[in-house]
């Protein structure tokens, strides 16, 4: 089921929680709505579900305008952040709940519940109560309940927030696997950029109700539309520096970073990711202020001119505080932004 959002707006008082958003999602895609708290991602999700009514705009499932259709008639499955499982009912009763409400006979409902339980790998726990299951298992029950009525669209609100770190990685792969197996158009909300990057077909980044960029993850990572997206994606965060361009030469506080760029003279804001540096004896000479090792990576805290930057290298490299080392920036990895913080280019 294709989804199309046109000028979707939700206003609370004077505030636009979602501001004239336009988005198109292809059938079978897994799309992540990504952004900080309050950016409007959950509001958008709930408008898609029908639980929240838009102030303006339209929502289309396929060719059908569903904007005024109530949630129970939209053929959607919704998974809440806290799973919203009925604690006094067994896993089986939880999953059959939507089917029974639609008038299906108990026997058949049980069969279909079992089918979907197998897909999400919860079929061994049908007779248990939610309180007897782990967080990850509870979430799978919630997904099963959402999928059992064979909806056209699956919506997930921060599905991984309540899980501990290690479980998150495993569970997000499960979500991806289930989604691919059932081939259902899926939209999920998250504030974790790594999560969105790892499983989404496309990511929609939002900030204060406005869509910032809608793109394939890796492309968005290398080509952020603006400074906000550049800063939001990537861990460790991008280094924000100020550069001067004169006669095609990019310098930061006098240190030459790139020559021969076709950029007008002037002072710009720029960003260089920590991993965009590479050790180069011919490059700029920097002094190590501090280091932090995390197993595989070595993060070097240093100064580029007057600005604190972090350089990410492999932990094989031997450095100590006070050492000097040379760096250059990989081609095309200096992101230059204009006065409106939009990406001018990559140099």
């Amino acid at each position: 089921m294709d989804i199309r959002i046109e000028n979707l707006t939700k206003t609370y008082g004077n505030l636009n929680a979602v501001d004239h958003m336009n988005l198109s999602i292809k059938d079978g895609e897994l799309v992540g709505l990504l952004g900080p708290s309050g950016c409007g991602k959950s509001t958008t999700l709930f408008m898609l579900s029908g639980l929240t009514t838009p102030t303006e705009g339209k929502i289309y499932f396929g060719d059908k305008d569903v904007t005024s259709i109530p949630p129970e008639d939209r053929e959607i499955g919704l998974v809440f952040q806290n799973y919203a499982l009925y604690p006094h009912m067994t896993v089986e009763d939880n999953i059959t709940f939507p089917l029974i409400n639609r008038g299906m006979k108990k026997a058949q409902a049980r069969e279909e519940a079992f089918e979907i339980a197998k897909v999400v790998k919860i079929d061994e726990y049908m007779k248990r109560r939610p309180s007897e299951l782990s967080g990850g298992q509870q979430q799978r029950v919630a997904i099963a309940r959402a999928l059992v009525k064979k909806p056209q669209v699956l919506l997930l609100d921060e599905p991984l927030s309540n899980l501990d770190a290690k479980l998150r990685v495993a569970t997000r792969e499960e979500i991806r696997r289930i989604q691919q197996e059932v081939k259902i158009t899926t939209i999920f909300v998250t504030h974790d950029q790594e999560e969105a990057m790892s499983i989404s077909d496309r990511i929609a980044v939002m900030k204060t109700g406005v869509l910032q960029q809608y793109e394939v993850p890796q492309t968005m990572y290398l080509n952020p539309a603006n400074s906000f997206v550049a800063n939001f994606l990537g861990m460790p965060e991008i280094n924000n520096i100020e550069i001067d361009v004169k006669d095609g030469v990019i310098t930061a506080d006098g240190i030459v970073l790139r020559k021969g760029v076709s950029l007008a003279d002037g002072h710009y804001k720029a960003g260089i990711r920590p991993e965009s540096f590479f050790v180069d004896d011919n490059g700029a000479s920097l002094e190590v202020d501090n280091i932090r090792m995390t197993g595989r990576d070595l993060l070097i805290f240093t100064k580029l001119g007057n600005t604190n930057v972090r350089v990410l290298v492999h932990s094989y490299m031997q450095v100590a505080v006070g050492d000097k080392f040379g760096v250059s920036v990989r081609d095309g990895h200096i992101l230059v932004f204009d006065d409106n913080e939009m990406l001018l280019g990559r140099f």
């Binding site: 639980l51 129970e72 919704l78 809440f80 006094h88 009525k149």
Partner: peptide
């Protein structure tokens, strides 16, 4: 969220009261 989930699953208010709220 339980109420909203039930709503999405086509559960009427009255049914929700009887089948979910009261037992819980």
């Amino acid at each position: 969220s339980l109420y909203l989930a039930a709503k999405v699953d086509k559960c009427s208010d009255f049914k929700y009261m009887i089948k979910i709220m009261v037992p819980m």
